[in-house]
Design a protein around this nucleic acid. Structure first.
Length: 369
RNA sequence: GUGGCCAUGGUGAAGCGGUUAACACUUACGACUGUGACUCGUACAUACGAGGGUUCGAUCCCCUCUGGCCACC
């Protein structure tokens, strides 16, 4: 994997770049839709491609449980297994340390309770790395501890140091198979911890760096601060990935502060519960005022769903609990995100990023809504 | 025709003398940020078939009516 920084916005820290992988190039800033189990919830790879996705995210933890990295490897790797020949990034399972209820964290790793079988499974930096190597994604993530928010300083400091140590163990576990290992900066909402973590990780000369432990309830204002504290300590010539973010406004604010990559479940998850993104804000298609609304979800959108279906039809599909309600909605939401990213890149290229951001937010957050 | 049982919101239903009529579903509106088609939050019977009566007080007791179910003729 290689990253080429094409330009930096003269009015902000927004950047334009290209990540090259053996499965193709990725234009940054980019949003990565999430396909945790090796499947993007309701969409086929062909549909994912149609939304404009350049890279998707899968999760090593989930694939380890089912069907197991050994089987994926035997199938020829994750790309071949799931029929997706563009770049893939796998998350290590570090986030599950944060999000799953039954786990025990030690200095060496984390014990999880298998959700289905109830058996105990153990993940540590070495095993998480090995799993991801077997899966064969283009970019793999370090095994970290995603610190909950709020969190007291002493725990945050101890956890952050552990994450740094774990990163070194991940790096040591790497074999030269062409995959790129990204480190994950933690440090909760403490400026010095974020800076310390970024500086320490920078010394390891990794192909990319991410910021983790955000979007865990701290809110947009703190998110902006955390990104602002961290980015200056990261190398210019390596991609920066803000994990698990976010809403359109979160992404715009973070691009402005120098982030290149994003992932989030929001567009696909919201699609399943009838929340759709439009240039004028989110709408919830199950609301009864859409029952007789014969306009597309977003009249300015050129996705398959908006070109062919009305809000009234989608409202009907959700009411009738038809599975393609999720399919058509996900196509739109993912397309919406990726179109926004495309426009962000165009704006940076034209030195008009801040104007674009203001214009977008004015329409999206809007007057009435 | 006679006897018995029952009648609570959009639905299924608790309560059976005492200030807010349980719960579930539906519905409505929210939430969801390194993903269980999940889940969660909030709202929703001035009202207990109708009319009388007893009582300090009735959805809960009594009478009549109306409606439904069952049994017998």
């Amino acid at each position: 994997m290689k990253f080429k920084l094409l330009k930096t916005d003269p009015h902000s820290s927004a950047r334009l770049g290209i990540i090259s992988t053996s499965h193709g190039d990725i234009q940054t800033p980019i949003f990565m839709p999430v396909a945790t189990h090796g499947a993007m919830k309701p969409l086929t790879p062909a549909q994912i491609t149609e939304t404009g996705a350049q890279i998707i995210l899968s999760n090593a933890y989930h694939l380890h449980l089912q069907p197991g990295e050994g089987l994926v490897k035997k199938a020829g790797g994750l790309h071949k297994f799931m029929g997706w020949n563009k770049p893939i990034l796998t998350d290590s399972g570090g986030f599950q340390v944060f999000s799953l209820p039954n786990k025990r964290i030690t200095e060496e790793g984390v014990f999880f309770k298998h959700e289905i079988t109830g058996s105990e499974i153990f993940l540590d930096p070495a095993s998480a790395t090995r799993i991801q190597q077997d899966l064969g994604a283009d970019i793999i993530m370090a095994f970290d501890e995603c610190i909950p928010y709020p969190c007291d300083r002493s725990y945050a400091e101890q956890s952050t140091k552990k994450t740094i140590r774990w990163l070194k163990e991940c790096q040591n576990a790497m074999t030269d198979n062409g995959q790129a290992l990204f480190g994950i900066v933690q440090g909760s909402v403490f400026e010095d911890l974020r800076a310390m973590c970024a500086k320490e990780m920078r010394k390891l000369d990794l192909p990319g760096y991410s910021i983790g432990g955000v979007s865990v309830g701290e809110g947009l204002e703190l998110l902006k601060k955390v990104v602002g504290w961290t980015v200056p300590h990261l190398p210019e010539d390596k991609p920066r990935y803000l994990m698990g973010v976010g809403l359109p406004e979160d992404i715009l604010e973070s691009v402005e502060r120098g982030i290149d990559m994003f992932d989030c479940v929001i567009p696909t998850r919201y699609a399943r519960s009838a929340t759709l993104f439009t240039r004028r804000g989110k709408i919830r298609l199950t609301n009864k005022n859409y029952k007789r609304d014969f306009y597309p979800i977003d009249p300015t959108c050129n996705c398959y769903t908006c070109q062919n279906f009305t809000r009234a039809y989608l409202h009907h599909l959700f009411t009738a609990n038809e599975v393609i309600s999720a399919v058509l909605s996900a196509i739109h939401n993912v397309h919406f995100y990726l179109k926004m990213m495309e426009e962000i890149r165009e704006a940076i290229a034209n030195n008009t990023f801040l104007a674009y951001k203001d214009h977008f937010l004015a329409g999206y957050l809007g007057s009435g809504k």
